[in-house]
Design a protein around this nucleic acid. Structure first.
Lengths: 241, 241
DNA sequence: TATATTAATGTTGTCGACAATATGTCAAGA
DNA sequence: TCTTGACATATTGTCGACAACATTAATATA
C-alpha cells in the first residue's frame, strides 16, 4: 500500500525546522526568537509561528523571560546533573523490558550498529557516530515496546541531549571508544539473557556517558553551558539569559 | 517582600482551566473541543484558545483526529499498563534520592499527611483522600529536589492520573486503606534510613495502586476506558471551567 | 426507495491589523 | 556630565475576517 501520509501542517513544519535548528546548533542557546523575523523566514503569518513556539516551550527548548521575550534555552550544569539519574533509570528500565523479549535477530541488529559506530569513528566521521549512538538506544527502546517509556525518554533526550550532540561531533575525544566498549558489555548481557545485568550495564553506561560529557564541558560561573558553535555555522550574537 | 507575581497570561489561564476541567472529569474523555465554543466560554478570540490547546496536545490531554478535530483524550488499558512500570521506576528513584537527605521533620510531615488521609477516609471524604495522596508523593518528590525528575513524573501524572482521580473519589473501595498501609511501610523504611528498602517499597506501592485500579476499572472491547461522570457534575455543561 | 448531486453549515487554518507594553534614542535642563 | 522626560522603535498579545475543507442536509434523478 502506498504511503498516503498527509502533508505536515504548517505548524508541524515550523516546529520541526526550529527544533532541528536548535538541536543542531544553528540556533545558539540564548539566541532570541523574534516572531517577526521567523515570519519572514518561513513566509507565513505569526499565528502558526506562535503555536510552534508554544510547542517548543512545552519541550523545554525555548524559554520565556519576565517580559515574554523568547530565547533558545541554555542548559546549566544542574540541568544535566539532574537528568543523569533520571535518564539512567529510564534507559535501564527500557533495557530490562527489552531483555525479556529480545530476539537473536534484534541482538544482531544492535551489534551491527555498534560495529558501524566503530567504523565511522576510525573514518573520523564523528557526527555519524553520534547519530548511530542514538540509533543504538532507539533500537532496544523499540524492543521494549512501551509508549509511555518512549515518551518519557524522548522528552529528556529532546530537551538535553542535543547539547551533547552539537559538541561531541566536532571533538575528537575518548567518549566514543568508551561508548563502543560499554555497548559491547550490554550486548553480552543481552546474549546471556541476564536481565539484571543488562539493567545495571545500561544504567552505568548512561551515567558514564553523561559524566564524561560533564567533565569535558565548560560552564560559566553561573553554571550556564559555554556554547561553542560547530565550524561551518554562522553565529548571530545572542544576548545571554 | 510583597508578592509581585505577574498576573497569568490569557493562554496560561485558559490552559489551566481546560486542564483542570479534563483532570477532574468535567470534560469527559472523547468530548470534542470546539474553538468557537471555548471562545464564547472564555470571552476571548480564538488565538489564545488555539495556543492553549497546543499545550494540552503536548501534554497528551488532547488528541487530534485525521481531520484536525480536537478531542479530550480517552485512555486505553494499554496506556495505563505502559505507564505502570515507568511511574514505578521514577517514583522509586525519587524515593531513593529523598531517602538520602530526608530530615526527621520531613518524615513527620509525611506521617501527618498519611494520618490525614486516614481521617478523611473515615469521614467518607474520598475526594480529599485523593488530593492528599498526591500531596504525599509530591512531598518526597520535593525532598528529592531534582527538576528533571519532577518534570518526568508530572508529565505522567498529568497525562494519566486524572482518570484515577476522577474515579477513585466517588467509589468507596479498598484502594485507600491499602494505600495508607503501604505509605506506612514506606515511612518505616525512611525512618530506618534503609535507602534500598524505601526504593522497593515505593516501587511496589505504585505497582499495587495501579494494578488495583486496573482491576476495578471497566474498559470497552477496544480497550478504551469507560468513563463515568462523578456525581454532582453535569455532563455537557462544563463552560464554567 | 435508493442513490447521486448540490447546497448549506460547521470547524479549522491562516492572515493582516491594532493595542499594549518594553526598549532605545535624543535633546533639554540641572 | 549626568539626569529627566518626550518621542520613536521593537515586540508581543489579541482580535475579527476570510479561505479551505469536511460534514450534514436538501434536492433531484433513476
Amino acid at each position: 500500500m502506498a504511503d498516503f501520509s498527509k502533508p505536515k501542517s504548517m505548524v508541524d513544519q515550523i516546529y520541526l525546522s526550529i527544533s532541528k535548528a536548535i538541536t543542531t546548533g544553528i540556533l545558539e542557546p540564548g539566541c532570541r526568537l523574534v516572531e517577526q523575523d521567523l515570519q519572514k523566514d518561513f513566509g507565513v503569518s505569526r499565528a502558526p509561528i506562535r503555536e510552534a513556539i508554544r510547542l517548543l516551550e512545552a519541550d523545554g527548548l525555548v524559554v520565556v523571560d519576565a517580559y515574554t521575550k523568547k530565547y533558545v534555552r541554555n542548559l546549566t550544569r544542574e540541568d544535566l546533573t539532574d537528568n543523569i539519574p533520571v535518564l539512567a533509570c529510564l534507559e535501564s528500565l527500557a533495557a530490562k523490558l527489552a531483555a525479556e523479549k529480545i530476539t537473536p535477530e534484534q541482538i544482531e541488529e544492535l551489534e551491527a550498529i555498534n560495529r558501524e559506530i566503530q567504523h565511522e569513528f576510525t573514518a573520523g566521521n564523528f557526527a555519524q557516530c553520534a547519530a548511530l549512538n542514538f540509533a543504538f538506544h532507539r533500537t532496544f527502546l523499540k524492543v521494549a515496546d512501551n509508549k509511555a517509556l518512549r515518551r518519557a525518554i524522548r522528552s529528556i533526550v529532546k530537551s538535553t541531549m542535543w547539547l551533547w550532540l552539537t559538541t561531541q561531533y566536532y571533538k575528537n575525544n575518548t567518549i566514543i571508544p568508551s561508548s563502543i566498549a560499554e555497548h559491547g558489555l550490554i550486548l553480552d548481557a543481552f546474549k546471556r539473557k541476564d536481565t539484571h545485568l543488562v539493567e545495571n550495564q545500561v544504567k552505568e553506561h548512561i551515567e558514564n556517558v553523561l559524566d564524561r560529557f560533564l567533565k569535558q564541558s565548560k560552564f560559566d560561573t553561573e553554571g550556564r553551558y559555554q556554547f561553542k558553535m560547530p565550524p561551518g555555522h554562522s553565529v548571530n550574537a545572542a544576548p545571554d539569559i
